[in-house]
Design a protein around this nucleic acid. Sequence first.
RNA 1: GGCGCGGUCGCCAAGUGGUAAGGCAAGGCUCUGCAAAAGCCUUAUUCGUCGGUUCGACUCCGUCCCGCGCCUCCA
Length: 479
Amino acid sequence: MQIYNTLTRKKEDLIPLEAGRVKMYACGITVYDFCHLGHARALLTYDIIARYLKYKGYQVLFVRNITDIDDKIINRANERGIDYRDLTKQYIGYFYEDTNTLGLLRPDHEPRATDCIAEIIALVQGLIDKDLAYNVHGDVFYAVRKFKGYGKLSGKNIEELSSGARVDVNEAKRDPLDFALWKAAKLNEPSWDSPWGKGRPGWHIECSAMSMKYLSATFDIHGGGRDLIFPHHENEIAQSEGFTDKPFARYWFHNGFVNINTEKMSKSLGNFKTIRDILQKFPAEVVRFFILSSHYRSPLDYTDQNIFDAVTSLERYYETKKRLKDYCAQGLDPASPEKLGDKIAAFKNDFITSMDDDFNTAKVVGAVFEWVRVWNKLLDEGRALCDDIRVFFNVIEEIHQTLGMFGSDPDVFLTELKNKRVTQTAVSPESIEGLIAERQGARKGKNFKRSDEIRDELLKNGIVLKDHPDGTTSWTVKG
RNA sequence: GGCGCGGUCGCCAAGUGGUAAGGCAAGGCUCUGCAAAAGCCUUAUUCGUCGGUUCGACUCCGUCCCGCGCCUCCA
């Protein structure tokens, strides 16, 4: 299988260091606020990579960090007048609520920066010992120019960086490009004892320390959002390779952004949608579908229309799944069945081929919908074979293992969707049922005028009625 | 200014040296008291521009235009 490697800017065969075993590290989040859709995308990208590698039979060791000490956390805690630990505890709780709802796999290790202070200090000391870092009154900086490979991941070179530097020049630094490994504590800041006095880790160093601790000096895959390429990942390389003299991560992947109006969704721009806001309106699977419908490296534009389109699509899939389920429950024996065994085998094959090609989830989604059409047609003609349907759903189950989509029970999904939608309307399920009952009476008495009035009235509130041949009426909420 | 990414149907989105998946929307049909819902069918001779390479390019190369990202915290 192939994975796009940011380091070489091309797709490469994935050949793990140890056969059958993949070690991967992903940059997690800084816990001072709710996660937004952009985080969801990054999280989901690692999730499907880990899931798919497991599906392929690899033993996967997956580590993702939580940054629970940094400037923003300290500032936010100060704003709220609370201890920073209470703040991070709170948002870590929300983080797990969100990731659980999204159905994200738990990493094997999910270390927090504050739990790895000893390792961080040892690493910083090692860099000082190797003369790659220097201490200035309790601040420790990495001397970027001493690391020859600096810029290899982001394609930057040191001269251009220094000429274009728009960083506030910190007087303590010997070079504006140098970055902090350890920050001396200011008044009333959280701090830990260190050989350089009280202080706390810089941002980049925790990932070097943790990947070394839980994986090894060299490991297979490392990733995160595109925005981490520089400086974060570049600095991680400098720290880790500077310290160990061994290659750091072998394959680097970076997911594209979620945009709003073609602009990057970010906290600083304030244009973000939190995961929990979206989850309130839509089933989690819709979020997965929305994100996985495009390739992980492409930009993804969030608009209400786009997410509504995603809902409509998924709804169609589950309507069909429900038809198939009901059809097989009837146990009919089709007169002239269409045998699809070979095509279903090809479908499974295509799934693997698509995922092998740099995790092309969008292509998998397309293939699934081709089957939606095939099945509907066969269902209309009464020619579907339940044996085939069962085999088909076995493949769907494998896709579900990897993508976390398409595997739900249709009634469960459709009901959840309906419930989430109805809470967005002004009417209650009880009042809807009441009006439907009234309308049934009107229809029986051929009072179509009243019947239509009720229907129109409900439609104004986004409630769509569906009359069935058996005389019953069900309702759904307009998307 | 430097580095990088992208421009494929009205919208979203795969793809690729051999002639454009899929979804949404739209139109037609089936169904229906009429509807709606659902299903089926149809919908890009064309892939930002202009050149070049090639038997052949949307796919490779170059130009230009447009959009975006990183260079400061950011998934």
